[in-house]
Nucleic acid binder design. Structure first.
Lengths: 134, 134
DNA sequence: CCGTATCCTCCCGGATACTG
DNA sequence: CAGTATCCGGGAGGATACGG
């Protein structure tokens, strides 16, 4: 880690940065996919498990609990046998939709640019490696 | 993992989901903090290391390389001795600023709601634990 | 000053088995 | 159906030392 020399205090701290708090809430891929699965209304537990490719029960439950704890998702239990559990976005969760969708739009609009940049970067990397081995 | 039963294909895949691609680019805390450090213009390597609390050289370099590879950040080397290296956002990187700031604004506006929800959730959790041990 | 290389630890998350 | 409990391997990332 960099040493903080006399009086030169860091001004970007994880604790107070708005961006960090943002990531604290939505930075996991499962969190976002689960959130995404609820964009168009409520869904049952098993249903979500089937719709979200590759998620395990453990992560589905854990992710839903976290979203619930943060007040973004509601859990509704119907105590039949077998039980039925539905999840849906809270008003707070819905308020997050718009900025999230803006960011999704940016990604869709610019992902090809990112891919192109990666190709270009990797290309120069290999040609440099090649030059070294001459 | 949930089994994909006959014909019931999952419709939310990591590979094609816009949100996932978004996280692919900005989901790490260091990535976001480094990006943040460049919001108001270019900065030198060491300067960023001092400003971003807790980051190690390894992660700073790794993060900058990734942002550079994705075409969001530019690296400018001045080959003096000792060398001087400045980093800045590319136009693509700048285009990401707006949606990111929207999300940051949401976080600032609603973080207290999230904290309140957490308190409430944790509160009910402990009172439940308490009830169990009666 | 601006990195890279190496080692080593910790914890995330998958697999599996069990329960109301 | 909707979870919980336990075990465990791999990779992210910190600490440290070295290099141009």
């Amino acid at each position: 880690m960099f040493l903080t020399d006399k009086g030169n205090h860091p001004d970007i701290s994880l604790k107070v940065c708005g961006y960090s708090r943002m990531l604290e809430i939505i930075s996991s891929k499962w969190t976002v996919l689960v959130f995404y699965a609820l964009e168009n209304g409520s869904a049952r537990y098993g249903e979500m498990g089937r719709r979200i490719e590759g998620i395990s029960k453990k992560m589905l439950t854990q992710t839903l609990r976290q979203l619930e704890r943060d007040g973004l998702v509601m859990r509704h239990l119907t105590p039949t046998i077998p039980p039925r559990v539905d999840y849906s976005l809270t008003p707070l969760g819905e308020s997050l939709l718009k900025p999230m969708q803006e960011l999704k739009k940016w990604t869709i609009d610019h992902y090809s640019d990112v891919e192109q940049a990666r190709d270009h970067y990797d290309q120069s990397a290999v040609s440099q490696d090649f030059a070294e081995n001459e």
